[in-house]
Design a protein around this nucleic acid. Structure first.
Lengths: 149, 149
DNA sequence: CTTTGACCTGTGAGTTGCTCACAGGTTTTA
DNA sequence: TAAAACCTGTGAGCAACTCACAGGTCAAAG
C-alpha cells in the first residue's frame, strides 16, 4: 500500500507539512516514484508516523524518537534507552504537575482575596499590584543588590 | 538611581541579554547617556522588569505584558483587560494540569503493567510496542481512512 | 487538446522567549 | 598604556512545527 504525502498525513491525522518535516528530519524513509519524483510512503512509514505522534504526546523529543526508531530498524535488540527516556519523562511530567498546581493555588487564592476586597471584583490595577508583589518561588538569588526602590 | 544593563539585570536576577531583549521589545524605556550612548535604567524600569518576570512566571506572553505596562503608563485607569487575561490564564493552567495528570496516570499504569509482566522489568521493545498502541486521547478524527495495516 | 484546479517538489521564513556570538566602541584597572 | 571588562546593535540559533513561494505534475472538464 503506497501513499502520497497528503494520504499518509490524512491516515495519521496530521498536517502534510508535518509529514514533509518528519521526512526531512529522517523519521520517515519514503521511496520515490521515478516517474514523477513524488514521495511514496508505505504501511511501515505510517506505523512510524503514528508512533512518532504518540511519542510526541508523551513528551518525547524528535531526536529521541528518531533514535528509538533507528534502533528498532537495526533490529538492534531491546533498547534500554527507551525505557530510561520513558521514566525520565515521567519524572518530568510529575515535576511539571507539581509546579502548575502550586501556580494554580496561588492564582486562585489571589483571585479569592481580590473578590473579598471591599471594592468588589478586582480591577486591573489591583491585579497589577498583586503581580508586582508576587513572590518568586525560585531563582531569587542575587536579587539583593539594588534593594528594590 | 540609574543603572546600566548589567546592573539592572543583576538587580532583577535575569540575564543582561534579557534586559536588552525586553528593551528592544519596548517593555523597558531606558534613557541614554549622551556621553557614551549607554542605556540608563531607573527604578521604574526595574519595577517594570520585575513585574514582567513575575507575569512571565504566571504564563503571560510578552505582548500581554507590554500592553499591561503600557496601560499602566497611560494612567489609563484600571484595565479590565488585565483581569480578563489573568482569569483566562488560570483556566489554561487548570486545563494543562488536567492533561498532565491524565498523561501521568497512563504512564504510571503502563509502567505498572510492564513490571508485572512475566519477563520482569520492561525492556525497550515492550515499551515501543506499548507506545504504538497508546490511544490518542483527542484529535483522532479522520484516522479512519487507510485503516491501519 | 488545452486549461483549470488540486496536488506534488524543495527551500526559506515565521512563530515564542530568550540566549549567545560577533565586531567594534568605552571605561576601568593594573 | 594596555589589557580586561564592560557597553553597543544586529543576527543567528533553539523546538517543532506551519505556512508561503515558485515551479513541476496530473486528473478531469471544456
Amino acid at each position: 500500500m503506497i501513499m502520497k504525502v497528503k494520504e499518509i498525513a490524512q491516515a495519521a491525522g496530521v498536517n502534510p507539512d508535518t509529514v514533509r518535516f518528519y521526512t526531512r528530519e529522517g523519521l520517515l524513509n519514503p521511496t520515490r516514484n521515478p516517474d514523477n519524483n513524488y514521495q511514496q510512503y508505505d504501511a511501515d512509514d505510517l506505523r512510524r508516523l503514528r508512533f512518532a505522534r504518540k511519542a510526541r504526546q508523551l513528551g518525547f523529543s524528535l531526536p529521541e524518537i528518531r533514535s528509538i526508531l533507528d534502533q528498532a530498524d537495526d533490529h538492534h535488540s531491546p533498547c534500554p534507552m527507551v525505557r530510561e527516556v520513558f521514566e525520565k519523562r515521567l519524572a518530568e511530567v510529575e515535576r511539571e504537575i507539581a509546579e502548575l498546581q502550586q501556580l494554580r493555588e496561588r492564582m486562585k487564592s489571589a483571585l479569592g482575596i481580590w473578590r473579598e476586597m471591599p471594592d468588589g471584583t478586582p480591577d486591573g490595577h489591583t491585579i497589577c499590584r498583586l503581580i508586582e508583589h508576587w513572590d518568586e518561588p525560585a531563582l531569587a538569588k542575587e536579587t539583593e543588590a539594588f534593594s528594590d526602590d
